[in-house]
Computed example of a mutant assay.
Amino acid sequence: MKSKNELTKDELEKREKRKLAGIYRKLDKDAKKSVESLIEEAAFMAASLYELRGIINRKGYTEEYQNGANQRGVKKCSEVEIYNTMVKNYMSTIKQLTDLLPKEAAKEVEKNDGFEAFVIGRKD
Protein backbone atom coordinates (compact mmCIF):
# COMPACT_ATOMS: atom_id res chain seq x y z
CA MET A 1 0.00 0.00 0.00
CA LYS A 2 1.32 3.43 -0.95
CA SER A 3 2.00 6.05 1.69
CA LYS A 4 0.08 9.30 1.52
CA ASN A 5 3.11 11.04 0.03
CA GLU A 6 3.15 8.59 -2.89
CA LEU A 7 -0.52 9.05 -3.79
CA THR A 8 -1.77 11.45 -6.44
CA LYS A 9 -4.44 13.97 -5.55
CA ASP A 10 -7.03 11.83 -7.37
CA GLU A 11 -5.96 8.75 -5.40
CA LEU A 12 -6.18 10.68 -2.12
CA GLU A 13 -9.64 11.89 -3.08
CA LYS A 14 -10.82 8.38 -3.96
CA ARG A 15 -9.43 7.01 -0.68
CA GLU A 16 -11.27 9.69 1.30
CA LYS A 17 -14.47 9.10 -0.68
CA ARG A 18 -14.33 5.35 0.07
CA LYS A 19 -13.76 6.06 3.76
CA LEU A 20 -16.70 8.46 3.98
CA ALA A 21 -18.96 6.27 1.85
CA GLY A 22 -18.25 3.39 4.24
CA ILE A 23 -19.43 5.46 7.18
CA TYR A 24 -22.71 6.32 5.44
CA ARG A 25 -23.36 2.98 3.72
CA LYS A 26 -26.12 1.99 6.17
CA LEU A 27 -28.29 5.04 5.45
CA ASP A 28 -31.53 4.54 3.57
CA LYS A 29 -31.62 5.38 -0.15
CA ASP A 30 -33.12 8.85 0.28
CA ALA A 31 -30.57 9.84 2.90
CA LYS A 32 -27.73 8.44 0.77
CA LYS A 33 -28.75 10.71 -2.09
CA SER A 34 -28.50 13.66 0.29
CA VAL A 35 -24.98 12.82 1.39
CA GLU A 36 -23.45 11.90 -1.98
CA SER A 37 -22.60 15.46 -2.97
CA LEU A 38 -21.37 16.28 0.54
CA ILE A 39 -19.09 13.23 0.42
CA GLU A 40 -17.76 14.33 -2.99
CA GLU A 41 -17.00 17.81 -1.68
CA ALA A 42 -15.46 16.56 1.58
CA ALA A 43 -13.21 14.13 -0.31
CA PHE A 44 -12.10 16.85 -2.71
CA MET A 45 -11.35 19.24 0.14
CA ALA A 46 -9.44 16.62 2.14
CA ALA A 47 -7.22 15.85 -0.86
CA SER A 48 -6.79 19.55 -1.63
CA LEU A 49 -5.89 20.35 1.97
CA TYR A 50 -3.22 17.65 1.91
CA GLU A 51 -1.84 19.07 -1.33
CA LEU A 52 -1.91 22.66 0.00
CA ARG A 53 -0.20 21.57 3.20
CA GLY A 54 2.68 20.17 1.12
CA ILE A 55 3.01 23.43 -0.80
CA ILE A 56 2.97 25.44 2.43
CA ASN A 57 5.61 23.16 3.95
CA ARG A 58 7.85 23.73 0.91
CA LYS A 59 7.25 27.47 0.38
CA GLY A 60 6.63 28.62 3.92
CA TYR A 61 3.87 30.78 5.36
CA THR A 62 4.89 34.08 3.81
CA GLU A 63 5.93 35.39 0.41
CA GLU A 64 7.48 38.58 -0.86
CA TYR A 65 5.47 40.90 -3.06
CA GLN A 66 6.17 43.97 -5.18
CA ASN A 67 3.52 46.46 -6.28
CA GLY A 68 5.14 48.89 -8.67
CA ALA A 69 8.67 50.14 -8.35
CA ASN A 70 8.59 51.35 -4.74
CA GLN A 71 6.16 49.17 -2.83
CA ARG A 72 7.37 45.79 -1.65
CA GLY A 73 7.13 43.69 1.42
CA VAL A 74 6.13 40.33 2.88
CA LYS A 75 2.58 38.98 3.07
CA LYS A 76 0.82 35.80 4.05
CA CYS A 77 1.26 33.17 1.36
CA SER A 78 -1.80 32.81 -0.87
CA GLU A 79 -1.83 29.04 -0.25
CA VAL A 80 -2.15 29.72 3.49
CA GLU A 81 -5.24 31.86 2.86
CA ILE A 82 -6.78 29.19 0.65
CA TYR A 83 -5.91 26.50 3.21
CA ASN A 84 -7.50 28.45 6.07
CA THR A 85 -10.73 29.01 4.13
CA MET A 86 -10.89 25.44 2.89
CA VAL A 87 -10.27 23.86 6.30
CA LYS A 88 -13.24 25.83 7.69
CA ASN A 89 -15.41 24.66 4.79
CA TYR A 90 -14.18 21.08 5.25
CA MET A 91 -15.07 21.08 8.93
CA SER A 92 -18.50 22.54 8.13
CA THR A 93 -19.11 19.81 5.53
CA ILE A 94 -18.02 17.07 7.94
CA LYS A 95 -20.37 18.51 10.56
CA GLN A 96 -23.24 18.46 8.05
CA LEU A 97 -22.45 14.85 7.22
CA THR A 98 -22.23 13.90 10.88
CA ASP A 99 -25.58 15.57 11.59
CA LEU A 100 -27.20 13.30 8.98
CA LEU A 101 -26.07 10.13 10.75
CA PRO A 102 -28.27 8.34 13.26
CA LYS A 103 -27.30 9.41 16.79
CA GLU A 104 -25.50 6.15 17.62
CA ALA A 105 -23.34 6.28 14.50
CA ALA A 106 -22.69 10.02 14.93
CA LYS A 107 -21.21 9.44 18.38
CA GLU A 108 -18.82 6.87 16.94
CA VAL A 109 -17.80 9.17 14.08
CA GLU A 110 -17.22 12.07 16.46
CA LYS A 111 -14.85 9.85 18.43
CA ASN A 112 -12.93 9.08 15.24
CA ASP A 113 -13.93 11.54 12.52
CA GLY A 114 -10.58 11.20 10.79
CA PHE A 115 -9.55 14.76 11.56
CA GLU A 116 -6.95 13.66 14.11
CA ALA A 117 -5.51 11.21 11.59
CA PHE A 118 -5.64 13.97 8.97
CA VAL A 119 -3.61 16.32 11.19
CA ILE A 120 -1.21 13.56 12.28
CA GLY A 121 -0.82 12.63 8.60
CA ARG A 122 1.02 15.91 8.11
CA LYS A 123 4.10 14.09 9.35
CA ASP A 124 3.94 11.48 6.54
Rank of each mutant, 00 (worst) to 15 (best):
K2V: 02
Y24W: 11
F44L: 15
F44C: 09
I82M: 09
E41P: 00
K32D: 00
K123V: 14
R18D: 11
E11P: 01
E41T: 11
A21V: 01
M91C: 14
S78T: 08
T93N: 12
R15K: 13
E116F: 06
R15I: 10
R15D: 09
E51R: 11
E6K: 13
E63Q: 07
A105F: 04
K111W: 03
Y90M: 14
V80S: 10
K75N: 01
E16L: 07
E51V: 02
K33D: 05
K95S: 08
K29S: 10
M45Y: 07
I55H: 01
I82A: 12
F118H: 12
G22K: 12
Y50V: 06
V35Y: 05
D99P: 02
E51I: 03
F44K: 13
F115T: 12
I23D: 00
L27F: 02
A106C: 05
I120T: 13
E51N: 12
D28W: 07
C77T: 02
E13G: 01
Q96S: 13
R53P: 01
G114Y: 08
P102E: 12
Y61D: 00
E79F: 10
K9W: 07
E108A: 11
S34E: 15
K9N: 05
M86W: 02
F118W: 11
K76A: 05
E51Q: 13
S48E: 09
K103E: 14
K29A: 13
V74N: 03
M86H: 05
A46Y: 04
L27V: 05
K103C: 03
F44H: 09
N89H: 14
R25K: 15
K59E: 15
G121F: 09
Y90C: 08
E108T: 12
M91Y: 12
F118A: 10
T98Y: 04
